[in-house]
């Protein structure tokens, strides 16, 4: 995938999230939303390293990962609106996105809980003799969970075809990294203790995200085992919801402005313009994306709610 396509993917994620933020005020999206604005490069770059048969999973902040992996925008918006046409038929909402056809195998809002399941998908691939690679998206908070360590230990033990992509946005809700992890140890160093190759990189530099993830995916596919990659990035909006939360005092305006200046889209746009891409071409992208979003939102809004009777099912698979 070239830089122009990566820019398109990031812009699409940005515009979808901004549209959700706008539409949220209508009070028709009646579930929590965790927006990825500012973190688009990790999703776009990492997902671009995967092949169509590969799989990915994520956590509560998963819109970007789902979209980057090819999840249906219509089904995602309909799910957030609680509609029957949503990707879970209205059972999941924003925090439970899934698109099996696209290889996006599920997201759940219990921190770290899809990590072992993603490792299980990789173990399944090994048992089944399949060449598919699984990618687990999670935040740095998840590396504080016991289940992360249990999972990466097993992945290392069995040399499983899995890539651990850690988005370090420095906050678990409002709790900064320095009250949660020791200052003298970097997040990515934890994986080294499990015998896993581990890297740390700029998560707002999409080409670098793609390069590192691609190497990890190729290694996993060829039987080389797992890789851990920590990408430093930053969440612009509030932890949960459509607005901003810089006014409540858990982070400084200076920190926010510093990261905003590192906008992954702006950086890529500058690189593209410097390489000779016409500004008009990039602007056309946005018009095309906005049209797609408007159509998907209209579809979601016009879709029927699930019937009352459908609430009890499907509890068990028959």
């Amino acid at each position: 995938m070239d830089l122009k396509q990566l820019y398109y993917e990031m812009l699409r994620i940005r515009r979808v999230e901004e549209s959700i933020a706008t539409l949220y005020a209508e009070q028709q999206m009646r579930c929590p939303v965790h927006l990825s604005i500012g973190q688009e490069a990790v999703a776009a770059g990492a997902a671009a390293a995967l092949k169509p048969g590969d799989q990915a999973m994520s956590g509560h902040r998963s819109h970007a990962h789902y979209l980057a992996k090819g999840g249906s925008l219509r089904a995602m918006l309909a799910e957030i609106y609680g509609k029957a046409t949503g990707c879970c038929g209205g059972k999941g909402g924003s925090m439970h996105l899934v698109d099996l056809a696209a290889g996006f195998m599920g997201a759940v809002p219990i921190v770290g809980s899809t990590i072992p399941i993603a490792v299980g998908l990789a173990f399944g691939a090994q048992l089944q003799g399949s060449s598919r690679v699984t990618l687990a998206f999670f935040g740095e908070g998840a590396t504080e969970e016991g289940v992360f360590h249990e999972s990466i230990n097993f992945a290392s033990l069995k040399k499983l075809p899995v890539v651990f992509v850690c988005e370090n946005n420095f906050y678990s809700v409002y709790s900064p990294l320095e009250v949660r992890q020791p200052r003298h140890r970097e997040v990515f160093q934890q994986a080294i203790g499990h015998g896993v190759e581990s890297h740390q990189a700029d998560g707002n530099e999409v080409a670098e995200v793609l390069r590192l993830t691609q190497a990890a995916v190729e290694k996993a596919r060829s039987g080389g085992g797992p890789t851990f990659i920590e990408f430093k990035t930053y969440r612009w909006r509030e932890h949960c919801g459509p607005g901003y939360d810089n006014d409540i005092g858990y982070r400084t305006p200076e920190e926010y402005e510093h990261w905003k200046a590192l906008c992954p889209l702006e950086r890529t746009r500058r690189q593209l313009l410097a390489a000779g891409t016409a500004a008009a071409e990039l602007d056309t992208m946005q018009a095309r994306i906005d049209l797609e979003i408007a159509e998907a939102a209209a579809f979601a809004k016009a879709s029927p709610f699930p019937t009352r009777e459908s609430a009890t099912q499907p509890l068990f698979a028959a």
Binding site: G120, A122, G146
Partner: peptide, 16 residues
């Protein structure tokens, strides 16, 4: 690693 391995088992189950 009871919790992690339960998750691994779930992952293999959804993988078939």
């Amino acid at each position: 690693a009871e919790n992690g391995m339960t998750g691994v088992a779930i992952g293999t189950a959804i993988a078939g």
